[in-house]
Amino acid sequence: MTKTALITGASRGLGAALAKALAPTHHIIAVAKTVGALEELDDAIQTAGGQATLAPMDITIDEAMQQLCRGIFDRWGSLDLWVHTAIHAAPLAPAGHLAPKDMEKSIAVNIAATSRLIAYVSPLLGTEGRAVFFDDPRGGQQFFGAYGATKAAQVALARSWQAETVKTGPKVTILDPAPMPTATRARFYPGENRDALTDPSAEAARLLPEILG
Protein backbone atom coordinates (compact mmCIF):
# COMPACT_ATOMS: atom_id res chain seq x y z
CA MET A 1 0.00 0.00 0.00
CA THR A 2 1.29 3.46 -0.91
CA LYS A 3 2.25 5.60 2.06
CA THR A 4 0.57 8.98 2.60
CA ALA A 5 2.18 12.34 3.36
CA LEU A 6 0.23 15.44 4.36
CA ILE A 7 2.12 18.64 3.52
CA THR A 8 0.64 21.80 5.03
CA GLY A 9 2.07 24.82 3.22
CA ALA A 10 2.78 22.83 0.07
CA SER A 11 2.37 25.48 -2.60
CA ARG A 12 5.90 26.89 -2.65
CA GLY A 13 9.32 26.96 -1.01
CA LEU A 14 10.39 24.06 1.17
CA GLY A 15 6.87 22.64 1.35
CA ALA A 16 6.63 22.23 -2.42
CA ALA A 17 10.19 20.89 -2.63
CA LEU A 18 9.50 18.29 0.05
CA ALA A 19 6.25 17.29 -1.64
CA LYS A 20 8.19 16.55 -4.83
CA ALA A 21 10.94 14.75 -2.91
CA LEU A 22 8.44 12.54 -1.09
CA ALA A 23 6.24 11.83 -4.11
CA PRO A 24 8.22 8.78 -5.33
CA THR A 25 7.36 6.95 -2.09
CA HIS A 26 4.20 8.69 -0.84
CA HIS A 27 0.81 9.84 -2.08
CA ILE A 28 1.01 13.58 -1.40
CA ILE A 29 -1.90 15.41 0.22
CA ALA A 30 -0.99 19.02 -0.55
CA VAL A 31 -2.60 21.80 1.47
CA ALA A 32 -2.26 25.52 0.66
CA LYS A 33 -4.44 28.50 -0.18
CA THR A 34 -2.97 29.19 -3.64
CA VAL A 35 -4.81 27.01 -6.17
CA GLY A 36 -2.55 27.82 -9.12
CA ALA A 37 0.61 26.90 -7.22
CA LEU A 38 -0.96 23.64 -6.06
CA GLU A 39 -1.86 22.78 -9.64
CA GLU A 40 1.73 23.43 -10.73
CA LEU A 41 2.91 21.15 -7.94
CA ASP A 42 0.47 18.47 -9.04
CA ASP A 43 1.74 18.71 -12.63
CA ALA A 44 5.33 18.29 -11.47
CA ILE A 45 4.47 15.30 -9.28
CA GLN A 46 2.47 13.60 -12.03
CA THR A 47 5.21 14.24 -14.59
CA ALA A 48 7.64 12.44 -12.28
CA GLY A 49 5.24 9.51 -11.95
CA GLY A 50 3.77 10.33 -8.55
CA GLN A 51 0.27 11.09 -7.33
CA ALA A 52 -1.17 13.93 -5.29
CA THR A 53 -4.45 15.03 -3.82
CA LEU A 54 -4.86 18.80 -3.78
CA ALA A 55 -6.56 20.46 -0.83
CA PRO A 56 -6.86 24.22 -1.48
CA MET A 57 -7.71 25.19 2.09
CA ASP A 58 -6.91 27.82 4.71
CA ILE A 59 -5.42 26.11 7.77
CA THR A 60 -6.88 28.81 10.04
CA ILE A 61 -10.44 27.69 9.22
CA ASP A 62 -11.29 25.06 11.79
CA GLU A 63 -14.13 23.48 9.83
CA ALA A 64 -11.88 23.07 6.78
CA MET A 65 -9.21 21.27 8.79
CA GLN A 66 -11.82 19.00 10.34
CA GLN A 67 -13.10 18.22 6.85
CA LEU A 68 -9.56 17.59 5.60
CA CYS A 69 -8.70 15.13 8.36
CA ARG A 70 -12.05 13.37 8.12
CA GLY A 71 -11.48 13.03 4.37
CA ILE A 72 -8.05 11.49 4.98
CA PHE A 73 -9.56 9.02 7.43
CA ASP A 74 -12.42 8.09 5.10
CA ARG A 75 -10.10 7.50 2.14
CA TRP A 76 -6.97 6.04 3.70
CA GLY A 77 -7.84 5.26 7.31
CA SER A 78 -4.57 6.70 8.59
CA LEU A 79 -1.62 8.93 7.73
CA ASP A 80 2.06 8.01 7.57
CA LEU A 81 3.64 11.46 7.60
CA TRP A 82 2.73 15.07 8.31
CA VAL A 83 5.16 17.84 7.27
CA HIS A 84 4.13 21.27 8.54
CA THR A 85 5.74 24.13 6.60
CA ALA A 86 2.83 26.61 6.65
CA ILE A 87 3.84 29.92 8.21
CA HIS A 88 2.77 33.56 8.23
CA ALA A 89 5.61 36.06 7.88
CA ALA A 90 4.37 39.33 9.32
CA PRO A 91 6.09 42.57 8.24
CA LEU A 92 9.14 43.52 10.28
CA ALA A 93 8.45 46.19 12.90
CA PRO A 94 9.68 47.32 16.31
CA ALA A 95 8.07 45.44 19.19
CA GLY A 96 6.30 48.58 20.34
CA HIS A 97 4.77 49.22 16.92
CA LEU A 98 3.38 45.86 15.81
CA ALA A 99 0.14 46.26 13.89
CA PRO A 100 -2.64 44.40 15.73
CA LYS A 101 -3.83 42.76 12.50
CA ASP A 102 -0.32 41.42 11.80
CA MET A 103 0.00 40.00 15.30
CA GLU A 104 -3.48 38.47 15.18
CA LYS A 105 -2.81 36.77 11.85
CA SER A 106 0.56 35.52 13.09
CA ILE A 107 -1.11 33.98 16.13
CA ALA A 108 -3.90 32.49 14.00
CA VAL A 109 -1.59 30.83 11.47
CA ASN A 110 1.55 30.06 13.42
CA ILE A 111 0.10 29.07 16.80
CA ALA A 112 -3.66 28.44 16.83
CA ALA A 113 -3.81 26.54 13.53
CA THR A 114 -0.79 24.44 14.49
CA SER A 115 -2.38 23.56 17.82
CA ARG A 116 -5.62 22.44 16.17
CA LEU A 117 -3.79 20.48 13.50
CA ILE A 118 -1.78 18.58 16.10
CA ALA A 119 -5.06 17.57 17.74
CA TYR A 120 -6.67 16.53 14.45
CA VAL A 121 -3.68 14.87 12.78
CA SER A 122 -2.36 12.97 15.80
CA PRO A 123 -5.09 10.27 15.70
CA LEU A 124 -4.41 9.76 11.98
CA LEU A 125 -0.69 9.25 12.62
CA GLY A 126 -1.34 6.79 15.44
CA THR A 127 1.72 5.25 17.07
CA GLU A 128 3.77 4.62 13.93
CA GLY A 129 3.38 7.87 11.99
CA ARG A 130 5.74 10.82 11.85
CA ALA A 131 5.29 14.58 12.17
CA VAL A 132 7.92 17.12 11.11
CA PHE A 133 8.29 20.78 12.06
CA PHE A 134 10.95 23.36 11.26
CA ASP A 135 12.75 25.64 13.71
CA ASP A 136 13.90 29.18 13.05
CA PRO A 137 16.60 31.03 15.04
CA ARG A 138 15.19 34.53 14.58
CA GLY A 139 12.99 34.59 17.69
CA GLY A 140 14.10 37.53 19.84
CA GLN A 141 15.95 39.33 17.06
CA GLN A 142 15.19 42.99 16.49
CA PHE A 143 12.08 43.73 14.39
CA PHE A 144 11.06 40.05 14.30
CA GLY A 145 8.56 40.40 17.16
CA ALA A 146 5.41 39.07 15.48
CA TYR A 147 7.07 36.36 13.42
CA GLY A 148 9.71 35.40 15.97
CA ALA A 149 7.37 35.17 18.95
CA THR A 150 4.72 33.13 17.14
CA LYS A 151 7.20 30.87 15.35
CA ALA A 152 8.90 30.19 18.69
CA ALA A 153 5.51 29.34 20.19
CA GLN A 154 4.78 26.99 17.28
CA VAL A 155 8.06 25.17 17.84
CA ALA A 156 7.41 25.07 21.60
CA LEU A 157 4.11 23.29 20.88
CA ALA A 158 5.94 20.81 18.68
CA ARG A 159 8.61 20.21 21.33
CA SER A 160 5.96 19.53 23.97
CA TRP A 161 4.25 17.06 21.64
CA GLN A 162 7.63 15.50 20.90
CA ALA A 163 8.35 15.01 24.62
CA GLU A 164 4.88 13.62 25.26
CA THR A 165 5.09 10.99 22.51
CA VAL A 166 8.61 9.61 22.98
CA LYS A 167 7.26 6.28 24.28
CA THR A 168 3.87 6.18 22.57
CA GLY A 169 4.39 7.71 19.13
CA PRO A 170 3.90 9.31 16.72
CA LYS A 171 7.52 10.32 16.19
CA VAL A 172 7.84 14.11 16.19
CA THR A 173 10.93 15.63 14.55
CA ILE A 174 12.03 19.28 14.59
CA LEU A 175 14.58 20.19 11.93
CA ASP A 176 16.76 23.24 11.23
CA PRO A 177 16.62 24.08 7.51
CA ALA A 178 19.35 26.10 5.84
CA PRO A 179 18.49 29.61 4.59
CA MET A 180 16.65 29.33 1.26
CA PRO A 181 15.50 31.89 -1.34
CA THR A 182 11.83 31.56 -0.38
CA ALA A 183 9.10 34.20 -0.55
CA THR A 184 9.07 34.32 3.25
CA ARG A 185 12.78 35.11 3.45
CA ALA A 186 12.49 37.68 0.67
CA ARG A 187 10.03 39.62 2.82
CA PHE A 188 12.58 39.72 5.63
CA TYR A 189 15.70 40.38 3.54
CA PRO A 190 14.61 42.09 0.30
CA GLY A 191 18.12 43.13 -0.76
CA GLU A 192 19.85 39.85 0.02
CA ASN A 193 21.99 38.01 -2.53
CA ARG A 194 19.71 35.05 -3.16
CA ASP A 195 22.37 33.21 -5.17
CA ALA A 196 24.22 32.51 -1.93
CA LEU A 197 21.22 30.67 -0.42
CA THR A 198 20.40 26.97 -0.60
CA ASP A 199 17.94 25.91 -3.29
CA PRO A 200 14.77 24.40 -1.70
CA SER A 201 15.12 21.23 -3.81
CA ALA A 202 18.66 20.69 -2.55
CA GLU A 203 17.57 21.35 1.02
CA ALA A 204 14.65 18.94 0.67
CA ALA A 205 17.07 16.27 -0.51
CA ARG A 206 19.35 16.94 2.49
CA LEU A 207 16.48 16.81 4.98
CA LEU A 208 14.73 13.79 3.52
CA PRO A 209 16.80 11.14 5.37
CA GLU A 210 16.05 12.87 8.68
CA ILE A 211 12.34 13.07 7.83
CA LEU A 212 12.09 9.41 6.91
CA GLY A 213 14.78 7.99 9.19
Rank of each mutant, 00 (worst) to 15 (best):
L125W: 07
G191L: 10
Q162P: 08
V83A: 08
F73L: 02
N110W: 11
A17K: 04
I45M: 00
A52P: 00
G36T: 03
L54K: 02
I174M: 12
G139Q: 14
V172F: 15
Y120Q: 14
F73D: 08
A202W: 11
A205M: 04
K33N: 14
A16R: 11
G126I: 04
D42R: 14
L68I: 06
T150D: 03
A149V: 15
L81C: 10
A64R: 06
L6D: 03
I7W: 08
V166I: 15
L22A: 09
S11M: 04
A186Q: 14
A95N: 10
D58H: 05
L207R: 05
T60Y: 13
P94F: 15
H84I: 01
P100T: 04
L175D: 07
Q51K: 12
Q154P: 08
A152N: 08
A19Y: 11
V121K: 04
I29A: 02
P177Y: 14
L22H: 10
Q51L: 11
D199W: 12
A108Y: 06
G9R: 06
G49V: 06
R159E: 14
P91G: 10
A32E: 04
G145H: 11
R12M: 09
L125P: 00
V31C: 08
T184H: 11
A90Q: 08
G96T: 07
G213M: 02
I174S: 09
W76M: 01
R159K: 13
D195I: 05
Y147W: 12
L22F: 14
L68H: 05
I7R: 00
R116P: 03
D199G: 09
P181C: 12
D176I: 11
P190M: 12
A202G: 11
H88G: 02
G169Y: 12
L81H: 07
A5F: 13
L197H: 10
G15D: 02
E128D: 10
Q66F: 15
M103C: 10
G9P: 08
N193G: 03
G77S: 03
G139R: 05
G169W: 13
E39P: 01
D176A: 15
T4D: 00
W82S: 01
L6H: 04
G36D: 13
F143K: 01
W161E: 00
S106A: 15
R130C: 13
A90G: 06
A204G: 06
A17Y: 09
T53W: 12
I29L: 15
D80N: 14
I107V: 14
T165Y: 11
A21M: 09
A48T: 03
A32I: 05
Q66M: 15
L207Q: 07
A108I: 01
L117D: 00
D199H: 15
T4L: 10
P56I: 07
D62M: 11
D43V: 13
L81V: 07
N193Y: 12
T4K: 03
M57A: 13
R130K: 14
E164K: 01
Q67C: 08
G13T: 00
G50P: 00
A17T: 04
A44N: 01
